[in-house]
Design a protein around this nucleic acid. Structure first.
Length: 629
RNA sequence: GGGCAUGUGGCGCAACUUGGACAGCGCGCUCGGCUUCGGACCGAGUGGUUGCGGGUUCAAAUCCCGCCAUGCCCGCCA
């Protein structure tokens, strides 16, 4: 169903190797052989370390084995011939056949090229970024949101059905603080609502040292949690206004969701009570009558340790789900919510359209007190994009869930942990509001504005101009590409120390660089008189240069997407994008396409396939490829 | 005290999960390239005991053990 040119070539190579091993009197399984095969960066098309493996089975010099295997190899459809280099077997493709295969793979379904069958229809819910509804997104939240978005894209392109969910904690202390500020402080909203809330929140935080105010806020939070009073209604209204504002930021970065789940609705839907019932039935809960946890409902840590590792020596003996005063902990709510995600609890949520239409054309649903039934949840896999600081609670959650369901807990609940974003001058602490204010602004909105400014400067300096009337749109796209790429090129688990200089890099190794390669490809195709499908003979005009290098790179797209999705590592994608962009740039500088005589048909086809591949990869990155930037 | 993550040329990163052929890329620095498809470009050069010490292996940045440094976490908070 999905084209994967390398799959066929690899399979054939494996068969030829298998036949060779057979002659040496060794029978090997397909997977044993395929494990030894790799695609080298240069010099050869496909390689194998099989001689080492065979040498381990029979007493013989691997170089000798390589020689025999290479010399004995017959020509296949895609494999032309092989040479032994020391103990390695390196093979060359039949370029006519392989070239045709690649170009055709792209042309058959251009939109879908790069997609693969990895997920085969399984349903996954991706939770991100779950920012408190009391402040604007800062660059740390942005990293989360971008990670979640791209992982979702990658999974979608890998045949998963993806639900993009955002969990809104509208019962938290932060919302109570904001509401208290609104009631008691003189300032009223006079700018983007999340920004205003954030500034006010800093203000309230300063007043927290006053125990009376602290007490008032705590009471307010309890009131909100009970959910019946005017203040509770007001808190939700507040939070909704804030989320609306935050989503303006999301949209400006091409980030979209399917559904918002509000904590107040989880409470309202009484999912929690049902979850506890099931947990009692599965006898994973205890209610000690004496000791530290007297009167609490808890899970024993010993039990958790039996199913997950990496907790270390934990001092406490149990994790509390229901406190002795009868209220539930965050962990308990999260546990209940995950039971909903995995379909243990029939959905009692009601949904409304929070937004009729996001810029991507789709509605954004939200849980609500009243509304329609929808089929959200009940998934095969849940991915939570959450900072590495929350590793421990996430591991506990996974442990408890595993006690409930061994298979799903271990395999299907994924904490996609990422390193926090810091600043040279210190940490991004929402509590102290160090990232907001007049002097230092590290909000996602500000970052985008800076990047847009830089984009416009670059265009101005180059003496070119944006397409008529499209300056803002193009500048935003390029800016988004720069920022997304910058956050994604670093492996998720690594911390990022944010620097403006690095974030606003538009040269090689950047999102704009990749967009530029795409635009150049588009430009060639625009100027071409005629585009036609190449015949096999056209591939005789392939050289050893960048044209063939491009063909080989294009062939890798489906595997790259699958690898990035399987490992939850978008930097696999950015690496590849860079590789293919840079190879295209070299091709562009050194080989002419238009009016290149007999080679023109082939080269145009390669440019076309490269453009399609680059375009699909940029889309996976969350960037709309533009033909003119 | 324990757990987890990170440590790769001056700087930012990749390769580690699944051990393989001279450790890749960008920035910086030095030098060079626009009368042919878009200079947000391309080429050449500079720069590395992969934190340290052991071990396993034909082969270690990669696996194992120990140590050092940095960060985060270990609540009847959310």
């Amino acid at each position: 169903m999905y084209a994967d040119p390398l799959e066929q070539a690899t399979k054939e190579f494996a068969e030829l190797l298998s036949a060779g091993a057979q002659k040496l009197g060794i029978t090997l399984g397909q997977d044993e052989i395929e494990k030894s095969i790799s695609i080298p960066k240069e010099n050869y098309d496909i390689s194998s370390t099989l001689p080492f493996y065979i040498a381990g089975k029979i007493r013989k010099d691997p170089a000798e084995i390589a020689k025999e295997l290479a010399e004995g190899m017959t020509k296949g459809k895609y494999i032309d011939h092989a040479v032994a280099v020391g103990p390695y077997i390196n093979a060359f493709f039949d370029r006519r056949e392989f070239g045709m295969l690649v170009i055709r793979s792209v042309a058959t379904d251009p939109e879908g090229y790069g997609n693969n069958a990895l997920g085969s229809g399984r349903k996954v819910i991706v939770e991100s970024p779950s920012v408190n509804p009391s402040k604007p997104w800062h660059i740390g939240h942005l990293r989360n949101a971008i990670l979640g978005d791209v992982i979702s894209n990658l999974l979608e392109r890998s045949s998963y059905t993806v639900e993009r969910e955002d969990y809104i904690d509208d019962l938290g202390l932060q919302v109570a603080e904001s509401l208290w500020g609104y009631i008691h402080l003189p300032g009223k909203p006079d700018k983007k609502f999340d920004q205003w809330l954030g500034e006010q929140y800093v203000e309230v935080n300063r007043m927290l040292s006053n125990p009376e105010i602290k007490k008032e806020i705590d009471d307010l939070q309890k009131e909100i949690e009970e959910g019946t009073t005017e203040n509770a209604r007001k808190a939700r209204e507040f939070a909704e206004k804030c989320v609306e504002a935050q989503y303006q930021t999301a949209f400006s970065y091409n980030i979209y969701h399917d559904v918002l789940i509000w904590e107040s609705d989880i409470v309202r839907a009484r999912i929690f009570e049902e979850a506890m019932g099931i947990a009692w039935e599965k006898s994973i809960l205890e209610k000690p009558e004496t000791g530290t946890y007297a009167g609490c409902t808890v899970v024993n840590i010993k039990d958790i340790k039996q199913v997950v590792s990496g907790l270390g020596d934990v001092e406490s003996e149990a994790k509390v789900l229901i406190k002795s005063n009868g209220t539930s902990t965050y962990l308990a709510k999260d546990f209940a919510f995950h039971m909903w995600k995995f379909g243990y609890i029939p959905s009692r949520f009601k949904y409304v359209k929070f937004m009729e239409k996001q810029p991507n054309g789709k509605p954004l649903y939200s849980t609500a007190a009243e509304g329609e039934q929808k089929e959200f949840g009940n998934v095969d896999m849940a991915i939570n994009v959450i900072g590495s600081a929350q590793r421990y609670p996430q591991l506990i959650l996974k442990g408890i869930f595993t006690l409930l369901d061994k298979k799903k807990g271990v395999d299907s609940l994924v904490h996609l942990s990422y390193g926090e974003v810091g600043l040279k001058e210190g940490t991004l602490s929402g509590r102290k509001g160090g990232w907001i204010g007049k002097e230092r602004n590290y909000t996602a909105d500000d970052l985008l504005q800076e990047a847009i400014k830089k984009t416009k400067e670059i265009v101005e300096r180059s003496g070119r101009a944006f397409a008529e009337g499209k300056a803002d749109e193009i500048a935003r796209s390029v800016a988004v590409a720069a920022i997304r790429f910058e956050f994604l090129r670093v492996a998720p688990e690594k911390r990022i120390t944010f620097s403006w200089e690095q974030a606003l890099n538009f040269e090689a190794n950047s999102g704009p660089y990749c967009m530029y390669a795409y635009a150049r490809a588009a430009s060639i195709l625009e100027k071409a008189k005629e585009l036609k499908a190449p015949a096999q003979e056209d591939f005789d005009f392939l050289t050893d240069g960048y044209d063939y290098a491009l063909v080989k790179l294009i062939a890798q797209a489906p595997r790259i997407i699958a690898k990035a999705a399987r490992e939850y590592r978008p930097n696999v994608l950015t690496d590849y994008l860079l590789d293919i962009s840079s190879t295209f740039s070299k091709f562009y500088e050194t080989m002419h396409v238009i009016n290149s005589g007999e080679a023109e048909t082939l080269r145009l086809a390669i440019v076309g396939a490269a453009k399609t591949t680059l375009g699909n990869m940029l889309k996976a990155l969350g960037v709309e490829p533009l033909e003119h930037i």
